[in-house]
Amino acid sequence: MSLLILGIESSCDETGVALVESSGDAVPRLVAHALHSQIEMHQAYGGVVPELASRDHIRRVLPLTEAVLTESGRSLRDVDVVAFTRGPGLAGALLVGAGVACALGASLGKPVLGVHHLEGHLLSPFLSADPPEFPFVALLVSGGHTQLMRVDSVGHYELLGETIDDAAGEAFDKSAKLLGLGYPGGPALSRLAQQGDPAAFKLPRPLLHSGDLDFSFAGLKTAVLTQAKKLGEHLEERKADLAASTQAAIVEVLVKKTLKALQETGLRRVVVAGGVGANRLLREQLDAACARQHVRVHYPELHLCTDNGAMIAMAAAMRLQAGRQQASTEYAFDVKPRWPLDALE
């Protein structure tokens, strides 16, 4: 039986809508998707303003839905299930997507399904031309989350390690802010790092030799601040070197901890998901390290690394396909701004 799933993502500063089609046991396929980023709106404030984010989601979600339907040649009546991001994320932003999804479901008489945002990222490589196979180790590097998971199948996730303070994405963004690079900081720091020397400054690699699979990046951010203050008036001329050294420290920790997770689990496949998964240096170094150990690495397509509706529709399709969840015609809804992935049923 074929199912057409409409997915709505509104957890933070991107509004995403997509259609995914699921048929039998085959990997669900992306039919169409549309995305609006709020980056330009939030730049003036140096970060995401939750109230503005929520209001912008309200303006964007229905026009994006219409665009996706037009691109696909489908109508709302063709949709079998409406999926939405239930959490984690900004409460007000989540409520917009949940409210619209449940209103659409009720008006069409179609069931709805709330999706875990991080599960969406985790399963997003299945949207690629080279989808992974279970089981695998997942490096989840999205926003405020840095986690290593063992993934045996849809809904069967074991947390191997996670950050105890700042996540990798936060380390990128906060270090960029210290260097005066604006918002969003992570991509700006990565671009600047291409012009610098990654060995110019000796920065810490927190928990690199801790013996476990946990992460910590708060100390690195403090070290960047200390070094920036030491440089004083010479910071501008050494900014690219400091950016490159910062990126090198973050990437080394991510790569080595991932390799340790592979060693401990005995698995031979890695999935990298989340916004930091688009980082070029991370991809280069992880690819090289895994190639030496004959380990396969899978990523989402670059344009699907950030938050998007396609990953939400895909996660819903795969949960339904695996029998992990049933879509519901109960249209009362709630959201979960804090929702650990390993607590997902």
Rank of each mutant, 00 (worst) to 15 (best):
Q195F: 08
Q326E: 14
H209V: 10
L95D: 03
G24Y: 07
F217T: 04
T163G: 02
A310T: 06
D13Q: 13
A317K: 01
S153F: 02
V81Y: 04
R319L: 12
D165C: 04
L203I: 05
I164F: 13
H145Y: 00
E236T: 14
D197S: 14
E40L: 15
V79Y: 02
N279H: 06
G180Q: 08
D130L: 08
A316M: 06
S10Q: 04
C12I: 09
H156S: 15
G182W: 08
A200H: 09
L104T: 05
G24L: 06
G99C: 07
D307E: 08
T306K: 05
V49W: 02
K221I: 14
R191T: 13
H33V: 07
F84Y: 15
Y299H: 05
F136C: 00
T163H: 04
I250E: 06
E162C: 12
N308I: 03
S190K: 03
M149E: 01
M149S: 03
Q285M: 14
T15H: 01
L242Q: 02
C12D: 00
P111T: 09
K221V: 14
G196K: 02
G114K: 04
S2Q: 15
V79W: 07
R191D: 12
Q38K: 13
T146D: 11
Q321R: 14
R59D: 10
V100C: 03
L320G: 03
G120Y: 01
Q325L: 14
V61S: 09
R29S: 01
K229C: 10
E330N: 13
R29C: 05
K177M: 11
L267N: 11
A244V: 02
S128G: 10
E133H: 11
L159I: 08
K229Q: 15
G232L: 09
K336I: 08
P184Q: 14
G120F: 09
K174M: 07
L108F: 06
E301D: 15
V27Q: 02
Q325R: 12
L123D: 07
P198T: 13
Q227W: 10
A168H: 07
G109Q: 12
V295Y: 05
Y299M: 01
Y331R: 08
R86W: 02
L140A: 03
D173A: 04
K336S: 09
L220K: 15
G169A: 10
A26N: 14
P131S: 12
H156W: 13
L304N: 01
R280Q: 13
V79H: 04
G143P: 03
L6R: 09
G232H: 09
D197Q: 10
D212Q: 13
R268H: 10
G114R: 07
L30D: 03
L181Y: 07
A167K: 06
D212F: 07
G196C: 07
H303L: 08
V49N: 02
V335A: 04
V49S: 00
K336A: 08
V295D: 04
A343S: 15
M314H: 02
V276W: 04
F172M: 09
V31G: 01
D173K: 06
G109E: 10
G185C: 08
A218H: 09
A315C: 06
E252W: 01
P125Y: 04
